[in-house]
Amino acid sequence: MEVDLIFKIAAIGIIVAVLNQLLIRSGREEQAMMTTLAGLIVVLMMIIHEIDALFQAIKSIFGL
């Protein structure tokens, strides 16, 4: 089980949260929104491969 993927996602979440606060405190709310959006897309691209593998496994095992 690849646990490092989970730690990567948690790390990205924490970094983006800190960046968000940093940008909001310095008065750039839009950049903060952009940073969160970018982080979200990065994490989604990482997960999409695993989700595809899971659904292929379900399809092959249960014969859907």
Binding site: M1, V3, I6, I9, G13, L44, I47, E50, I51, L54
Partner: peptide, 10 residues
């Protein structure tokens, strides 16, 4: 997203 990833891996 963390929950999604955890469920998928498990």
């Amino acid at each position: 997203l963390l929950a999604v990833c955890a469920v998928v891996l498990i």
